[in-house]
Amino acid sequence: MESLGEMLKSWPGGRSMSNQADQKLEELMADPLVERLFVKHPELNERAVRMNMNRVYQYVNEYRNCTNCPGLNNCPNDFEGHYTLLSCETVNDQVQLIDRKVSCKKFIARRSEEQIKNRIRSFYVDETALNNGYSADEILFNDPKRTEAAYQILAYIDKTKEEGLQKEGLYLAGKFGTGKTFLMCYLLHELAKAGYSGAIVYMPEFVEDLKSMMHDQAKLRETVEMMKETDLLIFDDIGAENLNPWVRDHVLGSILNYRMNRKPTLYTSNYELDALERHFSFTSKDGDEQYKGERLMNRVRPYVEVIMVTGENKRGRK
């Protein structure tokens, strides 16, 4: 019986094809990557390479593509963000080359970042702070006046990573534009990397949206349940909202009543705690209701560590 090589040579143009294959095999055998493959797998031989030239060529070509990576979005490999890896296996005294696709570092990093983002829900908050990523240096040294608060945030993150979710949350108080929301977004991002889910809610717009949800009970129930169950819940700019008794007593009260002693709730505010209690005690509908303000604060005050955030107003600065 004729060998495949002899059959190719006997066909019109077959000898040329065979010569091209021999030349390609010679080039592959001289490639440093293939030479390293022979060192790693001593059982590998030239016959196995010849029988698997397409696999070996793809292995070499994709390695070169990765070495000169043009970026994940312009990945030239067959499977974006993956490259071919070869290994050997001997079956019935025959060496077989086995190829498999492996994720590259850039693909793994992007997938990890997508998983992090999927753990965080944002309601009415500018997501730039969540999507751009952070560095500890940026958190600590952008504003020296804010450094002490930043260290407290970092300590809370480390404690949560070491011990698990804390029952106590944080209450960041300070003037406009000092970076309270920025610090909280950093906290969410870092703890999402550790596997925790979270939500950040901009209170003034959330409260206005709740009024329309009164007529969509399914959406209201879904929203409230999510805020009850998420690992970390941040109420951003609390105290700036225009409260009514229903929002205060039946929505906020319900969420905070469920979360206390279960999961941490965190806050940013321009008010310190006493001023926030006065805010909760007054609604546009019923006026001053000190008892109901105290009642809600009993679900806030005992469950937070207060951090004063000082520094310059960074809004509007270029």
Rank of each mutant, 00 (worst) to 15 (best):
L187Y: 03
S87V: 00
R64K: 12
V247L: 08
P144Q: 03
C104G: 10
Y258M: 13
L276I: 05
T265L: 15
V102H: 05
E138R: 14
N118I: 08
L97D: 15
E241N: 14
R248K: 14
G179H: 05
D231G: 08
V56R: 12
G81W: 01
C104F: 05
K101H: 03
E208V: 00
N52W: 08
I98T: 01
R64D: 09
K180R: 14
D274V: 11
M17P: 00
E294S: 09
R317H: 11
K175W: 04
M29V: 11
N131M: 11
T147H: 12
M51L: 12
N61V: 15
D99C: 04
N61T: 15
N61P: 00
D216N: 01
R47A: 13
G71K: 01
K40L: 12
R221A: 08
Y63M: 09
A194H: 01
I200M: 11
V91M: 09
A150Y: 07
K219H: 09
T160M: 08
C66H: 04
K101V: 08
Y267P: 12
E27G: 08
M184P: 00
C75N: 05
M51I: 01
W11H: 01
A194Y: 04
S112C: 11
I200E: 09
E113V: 06
N92A: 14
D216H: 03
D249Y: 00
P76G: 08
P12I: 11
L165W: 05
S122V: 15
R64Y: 14
S269Q: 12
R295L: 02
R259F: 14
S135M: 03
T181F: 09
R278A: 10
F123T: 06
I108Y: 03
D93T: 10
Y267C: 09
G169Q: 06
F280A: 01
G71V: 10
Y186A: 10
G5T: 11
L191N: 09
K106M: 13
G14W: 02
W11E: 03
I307S: 12
I116C: 14
D236L: 07
I157C: 12
E190V: 01
L233I: 15
A21E: 14
Q115D: 10
P12M: 13
L233E: 12
E241K: 14
S10L: 02
D249Q: 00
E62G: 05
E114T: 06
R299I: 01
Y171T: 12
N118D: 10
E229Y: 02
R36D: 14
P42D: 01
F107P: 00
A129D: 10
P264W: 07
Y151E: 02
I238E: 10
L256H: 13
I139E: 03
E62H: 02
D216R: 00
G174P: 01
K211L: 00
T178D: 00
K228V: 11
F141W: 05
Y134V: 02
N132F: 09
T84P: 00
K159H: 13
F107G: 01
D31S: 14
L232Q: 10
G293S: 01
V56E: 14
R259G: 10
E168S: 08
E277F: 06
T178A: 02
L210K: 01
D231N: 05
G71T: 03
P302L: 07
D22E: 15
T268I: 15
F182Y: 00
